[in-house]
Write a protein that binds this DNA or RNA. Structure first.
Length: 594
RNA sequence: GUCCUCGUAGCUCAGCCGGAUAGAGCACCAGAUUCCUAAUCUGGGGGCCGUGGGUUCGAAUCCCGCCGAGGACACCA
């Protein structure tokens, strides 16, 4: 399939040519050979470092080898000219006919153009969002959700078999606190006269989740269980029954409700996971013990006491014996506790169980999207996966930085209740799903980002969301005017009329799509897709603007049916690649701007 | 104190896992344009790539030290 990637195709041609020149070279000498667009377009369409890379093994001077290689490559049917340059590059200029011939390829493959084989069908699990099910989603979760979703789409396009996974942290103390908070709303729903302060004193850790969003859960609990979970009370009408009688049920009930809400929030973002894995279910299934045993069998577990962290010792530090995992054998700084001094499992232990669960399902690669505040957690998790998989399964972690929400350049205040962030739903309602998704992806994931509510809906070329959407809308507008010929028709159009530099520049850009997908997938960097689309839109807008000044460059010319058809093919191919990229980003291409 | 991420034009950011004279947008300067292919266009100035070393044919990119920003640092999740 990926001979639609003309860079890969010419790279293969180059290696073949080089092998003829240097028959004694082992095949692995060519591993570092690259074929890529040169930085300066004046150098040609493609450049290869081949001569420099193999020079040492070939015992030849790079420029000399480059000259010989250029001579061979010049004879290829795709190549108009080949010349040695600089310290040993070979620059290629492609035949325009070969470039134009990519348009029917694009039109024939449609949205599949750019699909790659880099993933080779390997099964990869992409875990993202995984917000605690203790409340609705807020903007803090949003970036990870969008980046993870786009990354999963990207990997699928690059030929991986992708599973989108959400890990539900429903086993810890926080979820217990959620249960207590929901129970409070339940008592209120029953009509207790107890004060919130009094209730808070009755429960461990106090009332932690005071948000209104649990009020409906309290009502639902009442509808489900009636008065059966409460104690009749002379003073308050309804008092608290011993937690043993209700906490587990309430916790489970509430987590289900929260997950429903989270799923809804994700759906408005256009995010749909394939699999939801419950931490509590893993623990119940005994995976924690299984994981521990697995590590114990490899002699990676011992009882021991950790050193206090150097430099900054917590005040309440005291030596404690814990069950430890030999993370240092896998590149971590210190060994990590699996069990607390009281014998109960740590969060890390549960997370190891989570990863064992992934490995047992046969994934060849694991990917996580985490907030940057979990950066310190990466090494130990990679250590655990390396230990459990005997180093056969890589775990890649993509960290996303904080998003600062602005409006008119001013920071948006967090709502009055401390710790409650802007709800994701409000954000989408204000600016729309597409603007949210595009903007989140128009920046490297690990770079801090400002999200200005005013700017992302601005209709000007300074707004990349608008800029790219507008390019697609213009394409569609032209194609509609021309009567929406099917791509199969346009693929047959003679293309010799496409000679303008701006037209050829656009074609060149289009042909870089497959390699962009592959490179972005390998680097796990979905933002590259956004930047590519921005560049592509730019090339198209340039062409459009030329048509405004010079009517002979317009796409549709009544008097020139031949060039019109050729240009329609170009426009249709452009629209196709734009759609293809937007699909990876999860952004809807618009038919027209309103 | 240790670790992680980062430091690129005045500002916001790219720079394709070592390549040629480091790019884009905004802002600034100079021109063009009132056109329905609406929601501008063309050109220009502007950078010891934080800093000091190292690796090699070649470093913004890889390695080490330092400076600076943000984050994480036993038994939380």
């Amino acid at each position: 399939m990926p001979d639609h990637d003309i860079f890969a195709a010419l790279r293969a041609r180059t290696i073949a040519a080089l092998a003829e020149l240097l028959p004694d070279l082992p095949p692995d000498a060519y591993a570092r050979v690259q074929m890529e667009p040169p930085r300066d377009a004046a150098h040609g369409d493609m450049a290869t470092n081949a001569a420099m890379v193999v020079a040492k093994a070939a015992k030849q001077a790079p420029p000399k080898l480059a000259a010989a290689l250029a001579e061979k490559l010049a004879g290829l049917p795709e190549v108009a000219a080949a010349a040695p340059a600089g310290p040993g590059f070979v620059n290629l200029r492609l035949r325009e006919g070969f470039l134009r011939a990519q348009l029917p390829v694009i039109l024939a493959e449609g949205l599949r153009y750019g699909d790659g084989t880099a993933g080779a069908g390997r099964r990869v699990d992409v875990e993202y969002v995984s917000a605690n099910p203790t409340g609705p989603m807020h903007v803090g979760h949003c970036r990870g959700a969008v980046v993870g979703d786009a990354l999963a789409n990207l990997l699928a396009k690059a030929g991986y078999a992708v599973t989108k996974e959400y890990y539900i942290n429903d086993a810890g103390a926080q979820v217990q606190a959620l249960g207590y908070a929901a129970y409070w709303r339940y008592l209120q729903a029953l009509g207790t006269t107890m004060t919130e302060d009094h209730y808070a004193q009755l429960i461990p850790g106090g009332l932690q989740y005071g948000g209104d969003y649990l009020v409906p859960v309290g009502a639902a609990l009442r509808a489900e269980f009636g008065e059966s979970l409460a104690a009749p009370d002379a003073t308050y009408r309804f008092g608290m029954l011993g937690p043993d009688h209700w906490l587990e049920q309430v916790r489970r009930f509430t987590v289900d409700r929260m997950m429903d809400a989270i799923r809804e929030d994700l759906a408005t973002l256009g995010v749909r996971h394939d699999v939801f894995v419950s931490e509590a279910a893993l623990v119940e299934a005994g995976l924690l013990e299984a994981a521990e045993q697995r590590l114990r069998d490899k002699d990676l577990i011992y009882r021991g006491v950790l050193e206090p962290p150097k430099g900054k010792t917590p005040e309440d530090w005291e030596p404690r014996e814990q069950t430890l995992f030999r993370a240092t054998q896998f590149g971590d700084e210190v060994d990590r506790p699996l069990r607390k001094s009281d014998g109960s499992g740590t969060y890390f232990a549960n997370d190891i169980a989570n990863h064992l669960h992934k490995l047992d399902r046969g994934f060849a690669e694991l990917v996580h999207v985490w907030g940057a505040d979990h950066g310190g957690y990466v090494k130990r998790m990679q250590a655990a996966v390396a230990a459990l998989s005997a180093g056969t399964v890589p775990l890649d972690v993509v960290l996303t930085q904080i998003v600062h929400v602005l409006k008119d350049g001013q920071p948006v205040r967090m709502s009055k209740r401390a710790g409650t962030y802007v709800a994701l739903r409000d954000l989408i309602e204000e600016v729309g799903r597409d603007a949210v998704r595009f903007t989140m992806l128009f920046r490297k994931a690990d770079a801090q980002m400002e999200f200005d509510l005013t700017k992302v809906v601005e209709q000007s070329r300074e707004n990349p969301v608008f800029y790219v959407q507008y390019a697609h809308a213009r394409c569609r507008s032209v194609l509609r005017q021309a009567g929406d010929l099917p791509p199969g028709d346009l693929a047959l159009a003679p293309l010799d009329a496409l000679v303008d530099p701006a037209e050829l520049a656009l074609i060149r850009r289009l042909t870089a799509w497959p390699r962009t997908v592959e490179a972005a997938a390998i680097a796990r960097e979905p933002h590259r897709i956004a930047f590519f689309l921005h560049d592509l839109a730019g090339d198209f807008h340039v062409l459009w603007n030329r048509g405004r000044e010079d009517s002979t460059l317009r796409f549709i010319r009544e008097d020139e049916p031949l060039s019109t058809r050729a240009r329609l093919a170009l426009v249709a191919a452009t629209a196709t690649v734009l759609r293809s990229g937007l699909a990876v980003m999860g952004v809807e291409p618009v038919e027209e701007m309103r």
